[in-house]
Design a protein around this nucleic acid. Sequence first.
DNA 1: ACTGTGACACTGG
DNA 2: ACCAGTGCCACAG
Length: 117
Amino acid sequence: MNRPAEPGSQEKRNRIIRCIRSLPRGKVSSYGAVAAAAGWQGAARQVVRVLNQVPGLPWHRVVGAGGAIKIPGEDGAEQRFRLRMEGVTFRGARVDMAKHEHRFSAPRAKRKRKTRT
DNA sequence: ACTGTGACACTGG
DNA sequence: ACCAGTGCCACAG
C-alpha cells in the first residue's frame, strides 16, 4: 500500500494533534495558539475539527482566545468542570490564561532568516 | 463549482 | 459587553 499522495495538510493536522496531546494537566491553550504552535497560523478552525475528529485528546484544555470557553451547551460546562478539576482557575467566565496558558516550545513557523545563535 | 456552516481570531463601532 | 464584518481552512449538500 502506499499513499498515493499525502496532502501536506495531513501533516499539519498531525502536528496539531501532537500539540494538543502535549498539553499537560492543569495547562490550557487556545485554538489559535495551538494552530500557530503547530506551524499553521490561522488554522484555529482546523484545530477545532481535529478536536472533534480525534478521540482521546484533552479537548477540554483547548479554549478560545483570552481563555474564553467557546463551547456552547452542556459541553461547555463540562469543559469548565474538567479544567477546574485539574486545578485551572478562572477569572469570571474565562480561564486565567496568565497562570495556565501553556508555552509551546518549538516549532515556530519558518520566519525569514534572522535566527540568532 | 458554489454556498453554507463551524468548539475561531481580530478589528471596529 | 454585544454585534457585524473580514480572514482562514476544510467539509457537506
